[in-house]
Nucleic acid binder design. Structure first.
Length: 412
DNA sequence: CGGCGGTACTG
DNA sequence: CAGTACC
DNA sequence: GCCG
């Protein structure tokens, strides 16, 4: 709505990763009456994103504490994730991660004097909790110490767990197992089948092997050329009805990506389904001489008709930097799910979560293969539910949910 | 206090 | 099933 | 950790 923008303080992005209020809670209770949900849709991240002001400047003044704050909050999030203690840590991690992103996205300069005002959206509703985000920032401003990080900084176990979790395929559980066995860094895992009796999975071995390649960002132009390469081969294999789209952060307009996300589908005419698309395309890639390493690839047919591939490829000369392997993902969908798949794969993850939570409040399950009524707890019955609407484009999905459309470049 | 997104693949 | 991954 |  028009009047909404007027309430946005100047220089302050309305993105507050802190997904306040309705965007966080709810779930198993009765779906809200649709009009109730619609009335508070501006509280959801996937709508706030509409009202963001300009991006933060490249450089703040010398008094700015923006970066110190968001980096510390991010560290705390990482530590919660690594801790993985009581099953709630991942939610604590999410909380700190969102707070970090809120500060990171802030266009306004935050200083020791104005922080209470500028970071007001991070303030929890009373009663104030002990380890809250707000308290953490306050005590840092007052004392100069991140009390939450003190003691963790020099905890060698935590440091090792954090380090190992940077490997693709190693999550909190595996990292802790390895650290318990004595591993302290990625270097300890290089070239090994196991570490002190802890077996390394095939995925982890590849994660270690291509560790440094996977850390590199891919320039936008190269992502585009890899898409063109795969698209050309797909057309040779499947004909002109095939569609290959580069999605993910690329489709949101980012100057660089950490991988190449490809969405493939086939227009009506040749084969109406996506079945077998991924394995055939992968074979075509290999046959054309491109070096491809699998991380995950489909073993069996899926119910929904979705096919997933995660792997690495070496871009040939003229396409990209042939000295590194690039992470690439392919997901194939039947054409009827294309708008849902596009929405899902364009993200961001936070945007997807928010939109799905909004749908959930209306008793709708939104996913990359459709929108279904949540009628029963029975999973089988769930999967057999018909799609609620035949979306032709992304906008149809927003419209059906009665959400304002968000252009892909601002789905933060 | 219950809930936090929905799905696919590995082992 | 738990773990990890994708957005 | 924070919200309803």
């Amino acid at each position: 709505g028009g009047g909404y923008m007027e309430r946005v303080p100047e220089g302050v992005r309305r993105v507050d990763g802190n997904d306040s209020a309705a965007d966080e809670s709810g779930g198993e209770e009765e779906p809200l009456a649709p009009h109730r949900v619609d009335d508070c849709r501006e509280k959801f991240f996937c709508q706030k994103v509409l009202h963001q002001a300009s991006a933060p400047p490249a450089q703040f003044g010398p008094d700015a504490i923006n970066e110190e704050i968001w980096r510390s909050l991010e560290l705390m999030a990482d530590n919660f994730k690594s801790r993985n203690g009581d099953g709630q840590d991942r939610f604590r991690a999410n909380r700190f991660r969102k707070a970090s992103q809120t500060v990171k996205n802030l266009a306004a300069e935050v200083t020791r004097h104005n922080w209470r005002e500028k970071l007001l959206s991070l303030r929890q509703k009373p009663p104030a909790g002990q380890g809250s985000v707000w308290d953490a920032i306050e005590s840092w401003v007052l004392t100069g110490h991140w009390t939450r990080l003190e003691g963790q900084q020099d905890d060698p176990t935590l440091a090792a767990v954090n380090a190992l979790m940077e490997v693709w395929g190693i999550g909190p559980t595996t990292a802790r197992e390895l650290v318990a066995a004595g591993a302290a860094s990625v270097a300890d895992l290089v070239g090994r089948e196991s570490y002190q009796g802890v077996r390394l999975s095939e995925e982890v071995k590849k994660g270690v092997r291509y560790f440094s390649d996977m850390k590199l960002k891919i320039p936008r132009d190269e992502v585009g050329r890899i898409r063109d390469l795969v698209c050309g081969l797909a057309q040779q294999e499947f004909g002109p009805n095939v569609i290959v789209e580069a999605v993910g952060s690329y489709r949101r307009g980012k100057p660089q990506s950490h991988d190449v996300d490809l969405l493939i589908t086939q227009r009506e005419g040749s084969s109406p389904d996506s079945h077998g698309l991924v394995p055939k395309l992968l074979q075509r890639l290999r046959d054309s001489g491109i070096e491809v390493v699998d991380l995950k690839h489909p073993q069996s047919e899926t119910v929904s008709g979705t096919e997933v591939y995660l792997g690495l490829l070496r871009p040939p000369p003229g396409v990209g930097d042939s000295s590194v392997m690039r992470r690439f993902d392919i997901r194939a969908y039947p054409i009827r799910n294309y708008p849902y798949a596009l929405l899902h794969m364009t993200g961001s993850d936070q945007f997807n979560r928010s939109m799905r939570l909004f749908a959930k409040k209306k008793g709708i399950k939104l996913s990359d293969n459709g929108m279904r009524a949540r009628i029963s707890d029975d999973r089988r019955q769930q999967n057999e539910m018909p799609n609620m609407t035949e979306a032709k484009c992304e906008r149809d999905i927003f419209d059906f949910l009665k959400l304002d459309y968000v252009v892909r470049g601002t789905r933060a």
